[in-house]
Design a protein around this nucleic acid. Structure first.
Lengths: 131, 131
DNA sequence: CTTGACCCTCCAGCTACTGGAACCCCCATA
DNA sequence: TATGGGGGTTCCAGTAGCTGGAGGGTCAAG
């Protein structure tokens, strides 16, 4: 199967698929004309990658998950460790963003947003405590 | 004032300060020995930048905010637009991450995390609906 | 035979820095 | 006066994860 169709099926752009081959996440064979000839297993892998990436796993995480996925004898423990670690990071990011949001929404609320030059947003950016 | 002390005061690493000069966010004059000689206004600007970046504003946002900050006649409206836009983006990001967290924490909860190979995490990564 | 939709590779650029090499400068001490 | 250490300087390269574009080959339809 050519890359275009694979892109459709996996939901990944062709550029991304080529990139994933570049960094060794997939390794489709080639036709005589040089076109990549994706097998069912490649497509399956790419879909897996798409979902893992959509969950915010890094490429390195994906590489590890893929290895575990292919190893039918791995312990679920190993997978869980990666997922849990990632979950922790996501939660930290959420907390960060929520703090930003709270500060920002206060600022936005307090700013008249009219023609006058007084602006609490800029004022606070001068005086906010350092993070 | 030399870059090291400015780094202390502003909370930004020297490398970052040089980078900010590179991209034109600050423009400190030079001593005869070639050292950057930061003025009070430069330090003030850098602190402003540090706080804006900590709130997640992009460099381009910062450039705009800085321009508005220096323009004593600007309308608070202009600032508010940038902040609100940014707030919307942050909220979208939070929503995204929360969705990820929910999915992931379900997966982690359902995974035994023991020596056996059965792992719902990998199973779901095979079958989850495409994002 | 041409057209247009594919496919290929390679190179550059994006964000916001960060690390490192190679070198210069200033001050204090032996 | 030499020297050592802790500043400072520039420039180059690399990070993550793609994305855009140039310049070219391939294939099926008309």
């Amino acid at each position: 199967m050519n890359i275009g169709e694979v892109a459709q099926q996996s939901g990944l752009p062709p550029k991304t698929i080529r990139y994933y081959e570049d960094i060794g996440l997939v390794n489709p064979p080639r036709d005589t004309n040089g076109y990549r000839a994706f097998r069912a297993s490649d497509i399956h892998k790419l879909s897996f990658l798409g979902r893992a990436r959509a969950l915010g796993f890094t490429i390195e995480d994906c590489r590890n998950l893929l290895a575990l996925w292919e190893d039918k004898t791995r312990a679920s423990h190993d997978v869980r460790v990666i997922a849990k670690e990632h979950l922790t990071q996501i939660e930290a990011k959420i907390t960060d963003l929520q703090a930003m949001r709270d500060t920002l929404s206060t600022l936005v609320r307090d700013c008249a947003g009219d023609d006058r030059p007084d602006c609490p947003i800029l004022q606070k950016l001068e005086t906010l405590p350092k993070p």
